[in-house]
């Protein structure tokens, strides 16, 4: 149950190895032990995520979850909700891919789209069903500023995030009468394994900073949050720039 001061009891992390997702989960827990359900690709990284949380005093359930196999999603979510209400589901899986391959290599493009977009919609529909049945609970969807204005350097990734961002923004409205909240979180460049080796963009932050901003927004019942917060203004400016100018920006 989410309580009066925003404590949670059970958190489902879809993308159980996501560094940002795990940081959000830890931040949601605050100082209290919670029940964490980690859904992710089985392997040493998922095991490590689980034992890390256990060592911090949390109860952990690990569920195998393959974003590329949407047909299996309803069953995974059925299991995630089987032992009790989920207070918050964090949709955190996603891949960055090789951006130059992503718009030229058919297979790479389809895979990126399936993981980042199709699978997000696939789990979103099931989350909506289970959470509505609870009459309460919430989703934190980890989108990205990359979806806010397509850039030459990563527009396929940006397009998938734009799609998932729109889906969860709409879902937020659809679920409002059911007592379910959706927070769309749009981090900028986050220094994680996913971005390792890439040159850090301006305003780069680490996952814990993102998690703090996101969870504060969630407790304040906000709809959308940028991390860091100043990106909201940056994006207002970037979105309104004419293409010839935007093209020349070093972002």
């Amino acid at each position: 149950m989410i309580d009066a001061v925003g404590n949670v009891q059970r958190v489902l992390l879809l993308g159980g190895t996501s560094e940002i997702g795990l940081a959000v989960l830890r931040e949601l827990a605050g100082g209290r032990p919670v029940h964490a359900v980690l859904a992710g690709r089985p392997g040493p990284r998922l095991d490590a995520a689980g034992s890390g949380l256990r060592a911090a005093g949390h109860d952990v359930t690990v569920l195998p979850f393959d974003a590329e196999d949407p047909a299996s999603h309803p069953q995974v979510l059925e299991r995630a909700f089987a032992d009790g209400d989920v207070d918050v589901a964090v949709v955190a899986f996603g891949v960055l891919g090789d951006q130059e391959r992503a718009w030229q290599d058919h297979e790479a493009a389809v895979r990126l789209t399936q993981v980042n977009f199709t699978a997000s919609v696939s789990v979103g529909v099931e989350l909506a069903r289970h959470l509505s049945a609870q009459g309460r609970g919430g989703i934190i969807a980890l989108s990205s500023v990359a979806g806010q204005r397509p850039r030459r350097s990563n527009f396929v990734y940006g397009a998938t995030k734009a799609g998932m961002d729109d889906f969860y923004t709409g879902l937020r409205e659809a679920l409002r009468p059911a007592g379910v909240s959706v927070l769309v979180a749009r981090p900028g460049f986050v220094r994680t394994r996913m971005t390792e080796g890439l040159p850090a963009a301006p305003l780069a932050v680490d996952q814990d900073a993102v998690a703090r901003v996101v969870v504060r927004a969630w407790r304040a019942h906000r709809d959308v949050v940028y991390a860091p917060a100043v990106l909201r203004l940056v994006m207002v400016v970037l979105r309104s720039l004419p293409s010839p100018l935007f093209r020349r920006l070093p972002v």
Binding site: M1, D3, A4, G135, R136
Partner: peptide, 13 residues
Amino acid sequence: ALAGWGRTAPSVA
């Protein structure tokens, strides 16, 4: 949507 007197943590029933 119902909450208690403190108007926190509502749920729908």
